[in-house]
């Protein structure tokens, strides 16, 4: 009687794989950008600090979907023909980079200046002080909010369906249209969307739990 469930579940499974792939690539891009932004904020050049600041302000003040659409339409105009998937990953990565950059910057700035002073007074060079004293402490501070940002990026991956990527949400929409078309006892939209919500819930809730576990474990 419920013979529509298995084909739909298999299709959604493919969508889930796309969602996880997008999330992974977005996280990688955003992390690299985030490190770059945090490095800019520690630069001795005021121009570099300004660029970092401006990037964060602009990309955090504009909706993620707007950035995604901007990249999606702008890339072909500057002669780069990419599919919606690549455009979506670049757009989300640019946006996530600003958020993750703020996390890293905040963690670095939260380390008291006397830590650096103390390290320098003990004879460590500026680089050594950064690598052996500042970064290990900043890493502990950054990890819980960083994992929190991963949750945000996984949830944001659903936006890619707006530009036609067959991620979890995108494939759910396609299946609902198909089911309504073949008339398999209604559209089953409620069951399918609740299923999609549950999958996102499991991923996000586990990541959130992981973040608080890390926070407890890493407390200095």
């Amino acid at each position: 009687m419920n013979d529509w469930i298995w084909p739909v579940a298999a299709y959604l499974g493919q969508g889930l794989l796309v969602t996880l792939w997008i999330s992974l690539l977005t996280v990688l891009l955003a992390t690299v950008l985030g490190l770059l932004i945090a490095a800019l904020s520690r630069s001795t050049l005021s121009l570099a600090r300004l660029i970092g600041r401006l990037y964060v302000e602009v990309f955090r003040g504009v909706p993620s979907l707007m950035i995604l659409l901007f990249v999606f339409f702008a890339l072909p105009q500057i002669g780069l023909r990419t599919g919606p998937l690549t455009a979506a990953i670049i757009g989300l990565g640019l946006w996530g980079g600003a958020n993750i950059g703020e996390v890293f910057r905040g963690a670095l700035n939260s380390i008291p200046y006397r830590q650096e002073q103390g390290a320098r007074a003990l004879g460590l060079s500026a680089t050594e002080a950064l690598v052996f004293v500042i970064l290990p402490q900043a890493f502990r501070r950054a990890l819980p909010p960083y994992v929190g940002q991963l949750t945000v990026l996984v949830q944001a991956s659903a936006l890619t369906s707006v530009v036609g990527v067959s991620d979890l949400l995108g494939s759910a929409r396609q299946m609902i249209e198909r089911l309504a078309y073949v008339g398999a006892g209604g559209s089953h939209a409620i069951e399918i969307y609740l299923g999609v919500l549950s999958i996102f819930f499991v991923i996000s809730y586990s990541l959130t739990a992981l973040a608080s576990l890390i926070e407890r474990r890493l407390r200095v």
Partner: peptide
């Protein structure tokens, strides 16, 4: 908080 707003919107409007 643990589900994307976009999916919530789809549930409200289309389901």
């Amino acid at each position: 908080r643990c589900t994307p707003l976009l999916v919530q919107i789809f549930l409200l409007f289309y389901a």
